[in-house]
Measured scan of single mutants.
Amino acid sequence: EDGINLEEIREFAKNFKIRRLSLGLTQTQVGQALTATEGPAYSQSAICRFEKLDITPKSAQKLKPVLEKWLNEAELRNQEGQQNLMEFVG
C-alpha cells in the first residue's frame, strides 16, 4: 500500500529490537533520547508499538528512517565506548 514495503519494515522492527537490546538500552531510554531530539512522536510507547508492529504502515514508514539513523549513531558511539553511548542517550 502506498509503495510501503511491509516486509522491509517487519525485518527492520525485528532487527531494531535485537540491536537495541545488544546495546543494553531500554525502550524508555530510546524514547527519551528521541523525544528530546525529534519530539513526542518518538516516545517509549511509540518505540514499543513500532517493535510490535502495532502501528499503521504509514506511521512505521515515518518512524523507520529516524530510528535507523539514531540506532546507527548509537552503535557508532558504543564502539567508541560505553561512556560515549550513555552521553549520546543522555
Rank of each mutant, 00 (worst) to 15 (best):
A33M: 12
Q44G: 14
L71K: 02
L67I: 00
I55K: 07
K69Q: 15
E68P: 01
S22V: 09
S22I: 10
M86S: 15
G90R: 06
N84Q: 13
A36T: 11
V30N: 06
N72W: 11
S43R: 03
S59T: 10
G90T: 12
A74R: 04
C48S: 14
M86E: 14
E38T: 06
Q44V: 14
F88C: 11
L34H: 00
E75L: 04
G39F: 01
I55L: 14
T35H: 06
I47D: 00
L53R: 04
Q32G: 08
C48D: 15
A46W: 02
Q29G: 03
I55T: 08
L25V: 05
K64D: 02
K69A: 09
A46M: 13
I47F: 00
A41N: 14
I18C: 14
I9R: 02
K17D: 08
P65S: 09
A13L: 00
C48P: 01
K14Y: 08
L76R: 14
P65Y: 03
W70I: 06
T37F: 05
E73Y: 02
Q29C: 05
R19K: 07
L6R: 06
T28G: 14
E8W: 02
I4L: 02
T35G: 11
L23M: 09
F16R: 01
T56A: 13
I47Y: 07
L6A: 09
Q32W: 07
R19C: 09
L53M: 15
W70N: 04
N78Q: 10
T56W: 01
E51H: 02
S59W: 10
E80T: 09
Q27K: 07
L63Q: 15
F88A: 13
Q61F: 11
K17T: 12
G39Y: 04
K64M: 12
I47C: 02
F88G: 12
Q82C: 06
S22W: 08
E8F: 03
D54G: 04
L6D: 10
L76A: 14
P65W: 05
S43M: 03
R49L: 03
K52N: 13
K52M: 05
Q61D: 13
I4Q: 01
L85R: 13
G39P: 00
P40I: 08
I9T: 09
C48I: 07
E11I: 07
K52Q: 15
Q61G: 09
F12Y: 05
S22Q: 15
L21D: 09
L53N: 11
E80N: 08
Q44F: 02
K17I: 06
V66Y: 01
K52P: 03
K52D: 13
A36P: 04
K17A: 09
R10H: 10
N15E: 09
S22D: 13
A46G: 02
E1G: 01
T28M: 12
I9M: 05
M86P: 13
S43G: 13
K58M: 07
Q32M: 10
I4Y: 12
E38F: 09
R10D: 06
C48G: 12
F12N: 02
T28F: 14
L53V: 07
Q29H: 09
K62P: 01
E87K: 13
C48Q: 14
K58N: 14
L21S: 06
N15F: 07
E38C: 11
K69C: 01
N78E: 13
N72F: 08
N78F: 15
A41M: 09
Y42V: 13
S43W: 10
L67Q: 03
L21F: 06
K64Q: 09
E75I: 04
L6C: 09
L23Q: 07
G24M: 01
G39E: 04
T56N: 13
R20E: 00
I47N: 01
T56I: 00
L85V: 10
A33I: 10
I9E: 00
A41Q: 13
S59M: 13
L63W: 04
V30G: 03
W70Q: 03
E68Y: 03
